[in-house]
Nucleic acid binder design. Structure first.
Lengths: 410, 410
DNA sequence: TCGATTTGGGAGATCGTTTACAGATCTTCT
DNA sequence: AGAAGATCTGTAAACGATCTCCCAAATCGA
């Protein structure tokens, strides 16, 4: 045995050790490990035996250095503690795991600087793919990625240039649907707490809100009825307090994500007011608590898990060499109606009948209890309404079905 | 210029390019980059200029291969979509980021096989550290880690052998406190929905529950009052349904984590019952929705962010060479009292007065609204009670204070 | 039987760093 | 002035895989 050949204590066992043990060259070991067909089965078996006997584990670093490609994805998202993103992460993790990739978790806090740092890290780590829920990414870094053949897809939020694959939810349609529902339920002084306007989610939800108002022949009662929040609980609370302090208040509000909805709700409770009699609420994101808060919250539910899974599949297909035009998978949100938007009963406001809009949706009430286990996503205690107009579905080659691949354990 | 020296399109710019551009050797460049003091300032400046001009980024893979150490931690947790763990992750991420480490996210679904796979991955990736919230880890892999000088700490859950550094919450004390509170509030037929008994969290919370009963001279009304759940929403719902279907029901229940509490609550609502009049609830984990569900939930709040941050600091110190005896940081949970455990009013059960226990806590009601922003963790609308007996604090060298390092943005 | 073709396997270069070692230069002291 | 340190800087050998060559053996055809 040669000096280096022995699996000496402390030293990692390398491909050389295996080669010696099996009496072959390192090249052969590598071939066996990588499934190169043209190697004698007898030899291959011997190698395999040596591998298991020595407990050999190839060094990822060496492989990465040689192939210039790490079997790793960078996952760059604004907030790991937001359930919307963690559900996405679950979808991504499941797909990545079964395809043999691991994930580097990058939490940007919606901070451009951290985002930049993490993009650079991805480059330095030679990751083979990046999944980005962008805040305000440096275009030059994106370009460098592409020129270096790093696959990159966006998720949840579009990047301004729109030149990447991505998986999104139709936020405009979701917001429009929410507004239609509020109007149908008799609310007519609508406000909106949206997210930062440098995110497409923040913009699109506001756009949908405004366009639905216009389509129904309405105007904003007061410019102050549009509030720009920060997608965080504190922001939702702050903006709701602002709305409540107006001399003439809205009678309903669309809040553009789950955390802000929670904050808004807290502000209302703190002010001693009631939902929906003093203020109706439609939130975005159907978080698990929505059905048991007081009152249960009507919301635009996003298929977050599938959003993640779809983006991961887009990435996989790019990594596997697909080089067609850019693809955008647009998933359809669902309005889940609960009590925070119960029919307006008060006589103070005349019932506002919107021309051309009939209350197309009826509250089918409770039912369908449990269902988080392995099931898809029937949430508890809500009437479910698929988005009516399929409109903006900009995908090509790929349908928006979100069935493929059952979701494990969870 | 030599053939390889030029930053040719497609080729990554390497340390050699920088060396050429700056007119020095690669060794010098490396020294400058790694902050080796003994290099001429003038040269160093030239190198730095070349680095920025060429946009040079060192290859992590090469560095890892050479040093046998990736500046990466593996973060192995059971469930990324559980807010308790994501809050922990936030704490870990913050510490890791500012120390220049990146995280590989490993989601095990409490599945031993996935856990094993990920531990092997950590080994193959040459990660320098592992943070593990264990389910049922393979001891031989742990030992291999240690013998390979990979630092490893546990968090949230203890590993049976107890031979690793770790950060935990005093679950026994938390559960005891919850029971004392329920008894003080007049409930005397107590049940417990705990987690899998192969997790220390599941066991400890049940232990605390039982020991507090005993200490107060009580027995379990019915063996079926102890339910083993799975820490998931569906499990909580299922076990609560089981409790509700008993001929003689408990009048209060301690539920051992946030998701199961949600499930349990849904089961109660679905059965048309009321909290707390039909069934009082104390949960574990103070998730953001606890204050706005109906009714607001009393819970044992865990400092999840700090739990993560502490474990990360333990890991850092090991990586930095600390080699003392094992350290366990034990954090103190806090009982937050809300309406799900309002004073028992019904006359059907005689008011059970527990000897030696006086209702030491008064419901101080609302107040203190917003406070998630950059603030520490004052939660909304709850009376806060620190654990009385500091008991099991097994740490050495290190206090349990959890102040160091302000928590950014969130 | 011999040459041509196929097939399997080994030698060794290579990926981009770090770092032990050896020079080279400059002080400083006797 | 010469020797002995003290400082820097460069040379080149790793680190552990992959993969291109290239050679040896085996197979085949005539």
């Amino acid at each position: 045995m040669r000096a280096r050949g022995v699996n000496q204590t402390g030293g990692t066992t390398t491909i050389i050790d295996v080669a010696h043990a099996a009496g072959v060259s390192t090249a052969t070991v590598s071939r066996v490990l990588n499934g190169d067909a043209r190697v004698n089965p007898a030899l291959a078996a011997r190698v395999q035996r040596a591998v298991t006997k020595l407990g050999y584990r190839p060094s990822r670093a060496a492989r990465t250095l040689r192939t210039q490609q790490a079997r790793v994805w960078a996952l760059i998202i604004p907030d790991v503690s937001n359930p919307h993103f963690t559900d996405m992460v679950r979808g991504i993790e499941d797909v990545a795991y079964s395809a043999g990739y691991s994930l580097i978790l990058c939490n940007t806090d919606a901070d451009a600087e951290k985002e930049r740092t993490y993009l650079e890290l991805a480059l330095a780590e030679h990751v083979v793919g990046v999944i980005l829920a962008p805040t305000s990414p440096d275009p030059s870094l994106i370009e460098e990625m592409l020129s270096r053949k790093v696959s990159i897809v966006t998720v949840d939020r579009r990047i301004s240039s729109g030149m990447l694959d991505g998986a999104f939810v139709n936020n405009v349609a979701g917001a429009e649907q929410a507004v239609d529902h509020l109007l149908a339920r008799g609310y007519c002084h609508l406000a909106c707490i949206t997210g930062p306007t440098d995110t497409t989610t923040g913009r699109d939800r506001l756009d949908g809100f405004m366009s639905a108002l216009r389509r129904n022949g309405l105007e904003l009662d007061d410019p102050a009825f549009v509030r720009i929040g920060d997608f965080r609980e504190s922001g939702g609370q702050r903006e709701m307090e602002a709305l409540l302090s107006l001399s003439v208040r809205p009678d309903a509000v669309l809040v553009a994500n789950n955390l802000m909805t929670l904050g808004a709700l807290k502000a209302i409770v703190a002010a001693g007011l009631e939902v929906p009699s003093d203020m109706a609420i439609v939130g975005f994101d159907d978080s698990s608590w929505n059905a048991v808060v007081h009152p249960p919250l009507t919301c635009v539910a996003q298929p977050a898990y599938d959003l993640g899974a779809e983006s991961a599949r887009l990435l996989l297909s790019r990594i596997d060499g697909h080089s067609g035009p850019n693809r955008e998978v647009m998933l359809v949100p669902t309005l889940r109606i609960r009590e925070s938007t119960a029919e307006r009963s008060s006589a103070t406001h005349a019932r506002h009948t919107v021309p051309g809009i009939r209350p197309s949706v009826d509250d089918a009430g409770g039912g369908n209890g449990r269902g988080d286990g392995k099931a898809r996503s029937p949430q508890t205690g809500a009437a479910t309404v698929p988005t009516p107009r399929g409109a903006t579905s900009a995908l090509q080659n790929r349908t928006t079905r979100s069935t493929k691949g059952a979701r494990p354990t969870r």
